[in-house]
Nucleic acid binder design. Structure first.
Lengths: 239, 239
DNA sequence: CGCCACCTTGAGTTTACTCAAGTTTTGTGG
DNA sequence: CCACAAAACTTGAGTAAACTCAAGGTGGCG
């Protein structure tokens, strides 16, 4: 019943990355998959805006991006955080339903939509990504609809620790040994708040609470050492 | 920038329904698509549980279903509501990530996963459904993360009025004529609460407030007459 | 070294929650 | 068709979690 929340990328879910598939294609058929076009973004540069015409999709090769939506009065909700291996830009219509912005410097692979239509491998990978994103959205829906501020932040922290917290969680390698782990947030407190459906103050207070309890240490604003991964995991509401 | 929230089915998003595609296939190739197997569920019967092995997908032909997830302490979040034309049962792994339960009596078309793999038309339809669901999940994420109780209920009500509230909203046909419309909820207050991330009491209070303002009339528990569609639409937070 | 952006903390408020009745509706059997 | 029971819904009073507003602190970078 348990599952990894926000398990990073589609690639991390067991598929080889799309770039690997590209290599396969080169080898197998000699066909040039895509223009091989890469695109770079600086931190907080916008890739596309909600409503823009959608004619290409992207794979994150490096860095972190977010998708968000705005309400007319300025309230923002970050609906997805994308990492290496994740794809973005697919849409049901001819326009994007979210804005895509870089959280860090980002490198992207660009694919024209007609490329996707003609490449079964590409299509297959896109499909895996869609299913993976859907599952994460389901988990995030539970977080936003039913979890407390503490549970949300704990869940967010656990999502940054690969291979822990899910059904396949091994627990601490050795229960007697301290179970610490450093994670890089790649997001400001405001961005985390907009992702978790909280205010910046609430996120800050929860982090301070965890600090006081000795469960985490804030190394830099952007980097947190989790002193006791299992301890944080117990706070996610999933145990 | 605006978009219909929860716009019912994938079919409603402009695709022909899968059943139509089946008919095409019969005509064009004479191939029998699928076993033609149908499945019926009574109200509140469970189709599958989170964690069950996933080996088929379903199309809702008639009735309403929901997908939900439970936290270990019993908190429930309804993550999706499915209507005629919608598909369910796809997964990234070999198990379902949600429980699927009928909200009303339901008729389903059953497809084996290998059928989908071998039918391009079926695949194409499934893909459209995935994209449509993703978009609705994005909108629902905004609702859960950033909207007030009143905005959530108003958004929910608007989702039951086809062709209104979205970018393509025509407004009232004639602004001088009363702009009323009856909608059937197909959900109890508790189910609505679990869908909107609220408690049953809050949903009830908001509905009473709307009643007092004369914006709606509760005909039966399950059926609400919206006296002024535009008035409700103004309360969704999207205008 | 100082500025700017970002983060933290406190005090007071608000929204939605919990708990506890009561009421209405629906479905069933007489 | 009515009576009854069960389920669903509503309402009120009090509480708690997270929000708003307002300072003040920290750290990274020119």
């Amino acid at each position: 019943m348990e599952r990894v929340l926000y398990a990073g990328s589609c690639a991390a879910d067991g598929a080889t990355s799309l770039t690997d598939i590209d290599n396969d294609m080169h080898r197998e058929s000699g066909s040039k998959s895509g223009s091989g076009r890469k695109h770079r973004l600086g931190s907080h540069e916008v890739l596309f805006y909600e409503g823009d015409r959608a004619d290409r999709i992207y794979e994150v090769l490096e860095g972190v991006m977010m998708l968000y939506k705005l309400l007319p009065d300025g309230r923002r909700q970050v609906v997805y955080v994308l990492r290496a291996g994740d794809m973005l830009g697919f849409t049901n219509h001819d326009t994007f339903d979210c804005t895509a912005e870089a959280l860090t410097a980002v490198e992207l692979q660009v694919y024209e939509t007609r490329e996707v239509a003609t490449s079964p491998l590409l299509q297959h990978y896109v499909n895996r990504c869609l299913l993976s994103q859907m599952e994460h959205l389901h988990d995030h829906t539970v977080l936003l609809g039913r979890k407390s501020a503490m549970e949300r932040v704990a869940t967010f922290l656990m999502s940054l620790v690969p291979d822990r917290g899910g059904a396949n969680c091994s627990g601490p390698a050795n229960p007697d040994v301290p179970d610490a782990r450093s994670v890089v947030l790649s997001m400001t407190r405001q961005e985390i708040a907009d992702y978790l459906g909280l205010t910046i103050e609430t996120v800050s207070r929860v982090i301070s609470q965890l600090k006081r309890k000795g469960l985490i240490k804030v190394e830099k604003q952007d980097s947190i050492q989790i002193q006791n991964v299992c301890g944080i995991c117990q706070l996610t509401g999933m145990h």
